[in-house]
Design a protein around this nucleic acid. Structure first.
Lengths: 103, 103
DNA sequence: TCGTAAATTTATTATTTCATGAATTAATTA
DNA sequence: TAATTAATTCATGAAATAATAAATTTACGA
């Protein structure tokens, strides 16, 4: 089916890019962070409270997601607030849930 | 928004499951394999020809995808044929492309 | 049965990833 | 200015991944 072919990943760069992004969101803590951010933007400390583990650890995971531009940050005074770079990310997670987790 | 909350990943197990599956499909070679299998089922050798790298390497990646039930296999005489476990996987990949790779 | 092709498995090595804890930077408040 | 809070960075060691090559299994055909 030609139409489907057109839509698919082609070319080394596209594969690599998608692969890196998927890999970035595939870590359990990072997936939790993304779920947490789906509601509203949150400060690092808010995320720590919601997700668990140390602030240092969260900060490193945030850096990975930020680097892939899956989330963006904004600094307000003392705090740094994170939000999803693209709200469709939530849709992607839900779709993954339906395909892989759902029964 | 309650409706959205309901749809999201909740509970440690769901997070872990989705995370493992996403991680499994996030490797460039495995993403290529999934793209290749979106058209039609293929033998291991077919996949090797389409994707590149050694048969041994492909076999190991297939095992990872098989283990997570992202693909299934069928043995016919001498050969083993692989196909997608859930055709919605293609949709998921396309969505990832749209969100992460964009145009 | 012997040899061969297809696929998987195993072992090895190199690389990457992750969590932890200490050190650092930046902004705030006492 | 000193002390405190928020966040990031850096260094370390342990664990997980991935590619290569060699060994093994399975089924087929001469």
């Amino acid at each position: 089916m030609k139409i489907f072919d057109e839509l698919q990943l082609s070319g080394e760069e596209e594969i690599e890019k998608a692969s890196r992004s998927l890999r970035a969101m595939s870590h359990p803590l990072r997936l939790k962070i993304l779920c947490t951010l789906s509601e509203t933007e949150k400060s690092v400390q808010d995320i720590v409270d919601h997700v668990g583990t140390s602030q240092s650890n969260i900060s490193q995971h945030l850096a990975i997601l930020r680097d892939k531009e899956i989330i963006t940050s904004r600094k307000d005074a003392n705090k740094v607030y994170y939000r999803l770079g693209d709200t469709r990310t939530v849709g992607l997670i839900n779709m993954a849930k339906n395909v892989f987790v759902g029964e």
